[in-house]
Amino acid sequence: MLAIVAAIIFGIGFLLDVLGIDIPGGISGVTFMLLGLCLLALHQAGIGAGSTGGFLGGSRRT
Protein backbone atom coordinates (compact mmCIF):
# COMPACT_ATOMS: atom_id res chain seq x y z
CA MET A 1 0.00 0.00 0.00
CA LEU A 2 2.78 2.41 0.85
CA ALA A 3 4.45 1.68 -2.50
CA ILE A 4 1.30 2.77 -4.35
CA VAL A 5 1.11 5.98 -2.31
CA ALA A 6 4.82 6.56 -2.99
CA ALA A 7 4.25 6.16 -6.74
CA ILE A 8 1.47 8.76 -6.63
CA ILE A 9 3.66 11.14 -4.61
CA PHE A 10 6.53 10.62 -7.08
CA GLY A 11 4.15 11.45 -9.95
CA ILE A 12 3.02 14.66 -8.28
CA GLY A 13 6.63 15.60 -7.52
CA PHE A 14 7.68 14.89 -11.09
CA LEU A 15 4.91 17.10 -12.49
CA LEU A 16 5.75 19.93 -10.10
CA ASP A 17 9.42 19.69 -11.02
CA VAL A 18 8.82 19.55 -14.79
CA LEU A 19 6.36 22.43 -14.72
CA GLY A 20 8.53 24.47 -12.34
CA ILE A 21 5.73 25.00 -9.84
CA ASP A 22 6.55 25.87 -6.21
CA ILE A 23 3.81 25.69 -3.62
CA PRO A 24 4.03 28.53 -1.06
CA GLY A 25 5.82 27.47 2.08
CA GLY A 26 8.87 26.03 0.32
CA ILE A 27 7.20 22.87 -0.99
CA SER A 28 8.56 21.89 -4.40
CA GLY A 29 8.89 18.80 -6.54
CA VAL A 30 11.98 17.75 -4.60
CA THR A 31 9.94 17.74 -1.37
CA PHE A 32 7.46 15.32 -2.89
CA MET A 33 10.27 13.12 -4.19
CA LEU A 34 11.87 12.94 -0.74
CA LEU A 35 8.49 12.07 0.77
CA GLY A 36 8.12 9.31 -1.82
CA LEU A 37 11.55 7.93 -0.90
CA CYS A 38 10.56 7.93 2.77
CA LEU A 39 7.38 5.98 1.96
CA LEU A 40 9.36 3.47 -0.11
CA ALA A 41 11.79 2.98 2.76
CA LEU A 42 8.88 2.28 5.12
CA HIS A 43 7.44 -0.17 2.60
CA GLN A 44 10.76 -2.01 2.34
CA ALA A 45 10.94 -2.17 6.13
CA GLY A 46 7.62 -4.00 6.20
CA ILE A 47 5.52 -1.23 7.70
CA GLY A 48 2.04 -1.00 6.24
CA ALA A 49 2.36 -4.37 4.55
CA GLY A 50 -1.10 -5.48 5.66
CA SER A 51 -2.03 -8.78 7.19
CA THR A 52 0.59 -11.50 7.39
CA GLY A 53 -1.64 -14.23 8.82
CA GLY A 54 -0.60 -13.65 12.41
CA PHE A 55 -2.60 -14.07 15.59
CA LEU A 56 -5.70 -12.07 14.67
CA GLY A 57 -5.03 -11.31 11.00
CA GLY A 58 -5.15 -13.34 7.83
CA SER A 59 -7.66 -15.83 6.55
CA ARG A 60 -8.46 -19.28 7.89
CA ARG A 61 -8.73 -22.42 5.85
CA THR A 62 -11.39 -24.86 6.93
Rank of each mutant, 00 (worst) to 15 (best):
D22W: 11
L2E: 11
L40D: 10
A49T: 09
T52F: 07
A3L: 08
M33W: 15
S51R: 07
L37N: 02
A49E: 13
A3R: 14
L2K: 12
G25C: 06
T62Q: 15
F14I: 07
L37G: 07
F10V: 08
F10I: 10
T31M: 00
R60C: 00
S59H: 06
L35T: 02
V18N: 04
I4Y: 13
T62H: 11
T52Q: 14
T62K: 14
S28P: 01
G20K: 04
G36I: 07
T31H: 14
G25V: 01
L15M: 13
A7H: 06
Q44H: 12
A3N: 08
G46K: 04
R60S: 01
G11K: 07
F32G: 01
L2G: 10
I8C: 15
G20H: 03
H43F: 10
R61S: 11
G26H: 04
A45W: 08
L40T: 09
A49S: 10
G20D: 04
S59T: 12
A45G: 10
A41G: 09
G26T: 05
F14S: 09
G53M: 04
F10R: 06
G36A: 13
V30N: 08
G48T: 03
G36N: 01
F55N: 06
I47E: 12
L40Q: 03
I12S: 02
L40P: 05
A41D: 06
T62M: 12
G25S: 04
L2I: 14
G48A: 04
D17C: 03
G36P: 02
G54F: 02
I47P: 12
L2V: 05
G50T: 01
I4C: 11
L15R: 14
G58D: 03
G46D: 03
I23K: 01
G25H: 01
A41E: 10
R61I: 06
V18L: 12
S59Y: 03
D22L: 11
M33I: 12
M33K: 15
L42F: 07
L2W: 02
G48I: 02
C38L: 09
L39A: 02
V5H: 12
G50I: 00
A45H: 01
L19V: 09
F55A: 08
I4S: 12
Q44G: 05
A41P: 06
L2P: 02
F32E: 07
L39K: 00
I47F: 14
R60E: 06
V18R: 08
R61K: 14
G20N: 02
G29S: 03
L37S: 12
V18E: 03
T52P: 11
G48S: 02
G46M: 07
A41F: 10
G11S: 11
G26V: 13
L34W: 13
V30P: 08
G58K: 00
I8N: 09
A45S: 13
I27Q: 11
F10H: 11
M33G: 09
G20F: 05
L37C: 10
M1Y: 13
G46L: 03
F10M: 14
T31L: 04
A7L: 11
D22Q: 15
I9F: 07
T52E: 13
G26D: 04
G57D: 15
V18Q: 06
